[in-house]
Nucleic acid binder design. Sequence first.
DNA 1: AGTCAAACTGAACTGAACTCAGGTTGCTAG
DNA 2: CTAGCAACCTGAGTTCAGTTCAGTTTGACT
Lengths: 208, 208
Amino acid sequence: MTRARLEEPDEGPRSKRAAILTAAIEYFGEAGYEATKWSAIAGQVGIGQTALYHYFESKAHCLLTIMRLELQRSRARFVEATGQTSDPTEALRAAVRAAFAVSDHEILQMRILQNNISLLAGTRTSKREETERQAARELVQLIERDWVRLLTQGMSRGEFPVRDAHTMALALLGMIVSVWRWYRPTGTTPLAEVSELIEGCCVRMVTQ
Amino acid sequence: MTRARLEEPDEGPRSKRAAILTAAIEYFGEAGYEATKWSAIAGQVGIGQTALYHYFESKAHCLLTIMRLELQRSRARFVEATGQTSDPTEALRAAVRAAFAVSDHEILQMRILQNNISLLAGTRTSKREETERQAARELVQLIERDWVRLLTQGMSRGEFPVRDAHTMALALLGMIVSVWRWYRPTGTTPLAEVSELIEGCCVRMVTQ
DNA sequence: AGTCAAACTGAACTGAACTCAGGTTGCTAG
DNA sequence: CTAGCAACCTGAGTTCAGTTCAGTTTGACT
């Protein structure tokens, strides 16, 4: 498996790529990918519909890019947060806290990621889409491995009872990311509260 | 809030409605909703594409019907499983076991439900679609309330430490249903094993 | 045998994603 | 300064899956 080293294309000074991504995150996140018209994003950015194809091969290519960027960001945060300590329980707590230390814009990206994650399953017909898809899939696998390693270390040190680390990791991840399906910044429960509650759940799940 | 009493339409002896639903579950579940062509389902059933519109107003209407049926089924199983006992911990265990006591075909339906749950958010423009959507949304809320009640009872009896029951319920549900995103009957981990592991996780999360 | 609703069909329509064949803009090298 | 050229953009046209239309067939029941 070769590591896909995707660097962001060099952006000229006139480039609207960042503006398109921002608008797309807004629309895809609020209204949903299928429900938003590609042309609406062009309108928001202030360019014609066809100009979008200068930056992205397709609507799906834009979506996959957003998803890949979010996966990169959230993996980086995980690595950064868990690298601070060698105590497995503390690392677990730090990982959960890192998962919920996000801006409103990043919440939208997590939501987009969750709502369209099944897109990563099937092969894409166009080249650049497929590249993004594979990069995203690899990141998903890396993130899963990161969590498995976290659990395995805790188990081998005797801090966590020994269980199927892989299934446990998927269960933890599943619980954490499921929050983005229902959480809204405008809702009644503040995110800090959700974060604390989930942190406790994760710890009890794993350590008892 | 009026309870939507959706009865299935009386099916004549020549009706292909059931066959269409079966084929749609197969296709939507295996390939994904967006990736399957509506006409492919007509082909599978052995009718012309336009005949589909005798049974469903649209492709989305068919999807929403599948989702609503699955929500009805899984709620009925929950109610049946948790009604057997008055011990909260045992009820919790029974609920988790019921969630994983499913056939291969029901696994597909759960997957379809999870992958397209965001469809329940926005209003639909056509009448029958909107009816199905609202029925499905109500079922989701009922299921959430069922779980909240389960937790609240355990807390008030002193079996579960008192925490935010609503957020806890969403966390439990999120963990359970997240399994259908990755589980495949052909995979290495048997479902019974997953079920046991998740059951333990839920109990530790809630009771400690 | 005639009636009626359920079940179905081929041809035409719609709209959003996308392609094509160029046109404009502004930086850079000479 | 201006010529070249790559980045950036556009209006007109194409495609294709989903859908509508205007009927036709089927078979249960008087």
